[in-house]
Amino acid sequence: MNDTLRRLNDAGTAVWLDDLSRDRLDSGELARQVREGLITGVTTNPTIFQQAITTSSAYDSQLAGLARLGTPPADALRLLTCADVRRAADLLRRVHDASGGMDGMVSIEVAPGLAHDAAGTLAEARLLHWLVDRRNVLIKIPATDAGLSAAADCLAEGISVNVTLIFGLARYRQVLEAHLDGLERAAQAGLDVSRIASVASFFVSRVDAAVDARLDKRDTAQARAVRGRVAIANARLAYELHEQVRSGPRWQALTALGAQPQRPLWASTGVKDPAFDDTRYVVELIAPDTVNTMPAATLNAVIDHGEPRGDTVRARYEQSRSILDALAALGIDLTTITEELETDGIARFQDSWQQLTTDIRAALAAEVIPGA
């Protein structure tokens, strides 16, 4: 294992790769990263799959076979993505077993068009759970009102989940509540809660991009003092909420039954502003029982020149509150921004999924994968 990644791991932060493709699997690159201890998990999303499938010839033979069977585009899309996730899960199974079920996970997302359909999300989560059929897979569900209802129901049935597209503290409180509710119902049903995993994907860099765009219009000393600091402060206060829940009586009762904690997962950790250090959303968010999922470029940057400094979260709660207070004093409402980011995040994934479905439909008709 790289020394930088070892220091992250020793401080409690697991490193997952935010990328998956047939090319990465076929080339042995993903297997190498797992074997060398560079990553201990993988996350995916509709945009990742859209880019992977439409830019590679690796899916040609499978698509040709599906075309001959007359497979509908939506079904073909699920078969392609589940096949990749299943292979990745098999590569990570040894990590999963060695960690006692805490790590070695792969995420696959429900169709983003179901973001506001609780019953539809639950039905698709069950389907994906059955199709992939691997213990170390997380079903990824957006943190909308409907999504949280479905996530709690999944957990109650023993389906492990990754609750995603979390931007704000109020929404994160609801995620934590849904996790408790789901595990409590699972325990009441007699399920083994030690086998039910969950992470909460709290997005980081998109928050800075949205906030800084507003701060730049102010061009004052007060605005410049806050610029580039809000996303990390927001994430650190999310971790404080995580700690508060874990010290509460409901979680303590679940711990006594062997329940795994729902780890905060820092998502959107690729730096969007070139003025910032390209490892900042990793080295500034190190804390026990966390996950940082990185695009390949960020992972390579961390390996090359990242400088972990131990826990960079728990001693900074008051500083983080001061930063958010300063933002509010400038008349910028962070809650409004995070709500807009949630809506935009869902729309982006819906666009990617719709475009991918269109591309798959065309590929099936032509028996040729687009981009080949």
Rank of each mutant, 00 (worst) to 15 (best):
L334D: 01
G28A: 14
V302C: 07
Q62F: 07
G65M: 09
A372V: 13
A31S: 13
D117S: 11
I323Y: 03
D3G: 05
V313Q: 03
G182Y: 05
L5H: 02
V302M: 14
A301G: 01
A150D: 01
D359C: 10
L183G: 10
A287W: 00
S205T: 01
A210P: 13
P46Q: 08
A225N: 09
E243T: 03
Y59P: 09
H96L: 07
S322Y: 05
Y317S: 10
G228E: 01
S198W: 02
R227W: 06
T220K: 10
R250M: 07
R236W: 04
T71R: 09
L324V: 03
L122H: 06
L80R: 08
D97P: 08
G371C: 11
A83W: 03
L327V: 04
T343N: 08
A231P: 10
Y172M: 06
I346A: 06
R214K: 15
G113R: 12
L299V: 02
E124F: 13
D103W: 09
E307W: 05
S322F: 04
A14Y: 00
L66E: 06
A267M: 11
G371L: 11
D97G: 09
Q174E: 15
V207H: 06
A256T: 00
G113W: 10
D90Y: 05
I369A: 11
F167K: 06
D359K: 09
